[in-house]
Design a protein around this nucleic acid. Structure first.
Lengths: 334, 334
DNA sequence: ATGAAAGCGCTAACAT
DNA sequence: ATGTTAGCGCTTTCAT
């Protein structure tokens, strides 16, 4: 593989000058620069970023750790973060924590070893971060952990929007399919549901807790929780879910139980992944500003890396995307 | 940041010995190794993989370039490849080509610069690979390009299975929703459909070409192509698609046009992503062995890196996953 | 505006 | 079994 020395020799300059050309140092004379560029072309020189990183202490590489790329929400996140990173001249090292704090910890180590310039993490569990005393700049996504910068949307407010919309439609028995009980994001959304549904349920003589389920964010789990909820008496006329995947799983359960959506059951999703707009009926859902989250996370990380003090982050606004999966309850008394 | 020298000093050994311990060189004595390990612990030493890579000429990093992580098929691929890479002690640098050959070429450059040990690419267009005279080992996924190793399933055979299944059910007017016309994978699947549908269509006096559409692999495109196909006279009673996403888009179009699936229209997907099993009706689809593909790609790449000559790859077998989205045609004459 | 040379933190070859 | 040391390919002072 051709090295910087050979380029220098060919262009008749010193290696320092070649380095300056590659780093766009404006002090090199135009003619010199052109000779060097020609030599680079002719030799098809592929600079060694490893050597550059060792010396400059910059890898121009960001690490991203997500629980599961297979979850469309995170897939969108990965895509936008990758794009933002690339736009700023950075590559992306990807880690899949599989919702396992141990894996997460392991990746933080591995990526630190690789000397990434910074880490973006959608954390699965606070402990991994708490224990880690790393010197790598970190920006969290979705979920705050004390002492770390975070970019997130207002999950509780989002779930509350969803529940309020259903209440306005006339629903009284509104159930909740939440994410894993140990994940704050899931708890926040559950809390948003409770803000609205607790009184409604209680005044009808029911225990709000019995109308909530906690489980994974995926299709299967959503389907199972819906089955359990739809077996309740009185049966809920509406369900607020913690993810679009759970919502689609719930639609599946309803179909199996011959409960028409939205005529006999209203369902609201969360995230607004592309799938939400194509299932039948089209899913009404709480849209997260995934792109804004991604871009803000990258720019915050880059600032951190450059030693800029971060201002406190404002939670980003969610937006209720109204489509077809909700309707007034069948026998609404209003 | 603490360096290997400090660890050596603390353990009372030379840096060479510390290096040996870290690289599991069996020649170090047990007692020595334990002293070194203790020092590593006490100092919370995070080795610098960049320096190690510069010297050893190994980055233990693989590059993966996919057209779009947001496509569930590729998301699954990323996940399995990441896992296989991690199991072999390698990290993963991810690039999203966005179906753009220029982007793809750019990523190949960037990752070469980063000195990845190898590259796994799901190519968008042959030209990017053909032009590139890189010295990095490359393994292709899904789609062959002359002169490169490839791991792929038998797309044509898969689509043929799907079409044959529909023919056996009694369908005669079987349409095709294909991927982009310039992508060989899409053409292969289209060819598999044609193998079965051409005669059927022709003997009924129709032009097979008018029952095929080419477009993107996503929901939206599938929906549009289905609309166009379902406006045909005679209307197709079945559709073979190029992806599960297109199939779900087609189901959406059918729902909008009040055409019940599978009673009046049968639909077969391709890939078998998790979504396929939860939509209503559950999607009958051609399953690709994503995990096998991923693992084989990684192990082939690792072998290439280590200078092992690769044996010719056998296309992997697809499997028709029969679920609920197909039925005999409504007015089957049989 | 450019050259010379030190050195980033490791590994690997060689020495003992 | 372990120490010593050159050097991986760059960037970055420091000279000039």
């Amino acid at each position: 593989m051709v090295s910087i020395r050979e380029v220098a020799r060919r262009a008749g300059v010193s290696v320092g000058t070649v380095s300056r050309v590659m780093n766009r140092n404006p002090t090199v004379q135009r003619a010199t620069r052109e000779r060097v560029e020609a030599a680079i072309q002719e030799l098809d020189y592929v600079p060694n970023a490893i050597a550059a990183s060792l010396r400059s202490r910059r890898t121009h590489t960001l690490g991203l750790i997500v629980p599961d790329v297979t979850n469309p929400y995170f897939a969108e996140l990965v895509r936008h973060i990758e794009r933002a990173a690339a736009a700023a001249g950075n590559s992306l090292l990807l880690g899949n924590s599989d919702n396992d704090p141990l894996q997460e910890r392991l990746y933080i180590r591995t990526l630190s070893t690789r000397r990434v310039d910074g880490l973006i993490i959608a954390p699965t569990d606070a402990s991994a971060l708490h224990a880690e005393t790393t010197r790598v700049p970190i920006v969290l996504i979705d979920r705050p952990v004390a002492g770390h910068a975070v970019v997130a949307s207002n999950h509780r407010e989002g779930a509350r929007q969803a529940a309020e919309y259903l209440a306005q439609l006339g629903h009284r028995v509104i159930a909740c399919i939440a994410g894993p009980a140990d994940i704050p994001v899931a708890r926040d959304r559950h809390a948003g549901w409770l803000d609205v549904a607790a009184d409604l349920l209680a005044s009808a003589g029911m225990d709000p807790a019995s109308y909530a389920r906690f489980g994974a964010f995926d299709f299967l789990s959503g389907e199972e929780m819906a089955r359990s909820l739809l077996a309740l008496n009185p049966r809920p006329t509406a369900i607020v879910t913690g993810s679009d995947q759970q919502a689609v799983g719930a639609m599946r359960a309803a179909a199996d139980m011959k409960i028409p959506v939205p005529q006999a059951l209203s369902i609201v999703g969360f995230d607004d992944i592309p799938l939400a707009a194509v299932v039948s009926p089209r899913l009404t859902t709480v849209a997260q500003p995934i792109r804004a989250i991604s871009e803000e996370a990258v720019s915050a990380l880059l600032q951190l890396r450059d030693g800029v003090a971060l201002s406190r982050h404002q939670p980003l606004r969610t937006r209720l995307e109204i489509r077809e999966s909700c309707a007034p309850p069948a026998y609404s008394s209003s």
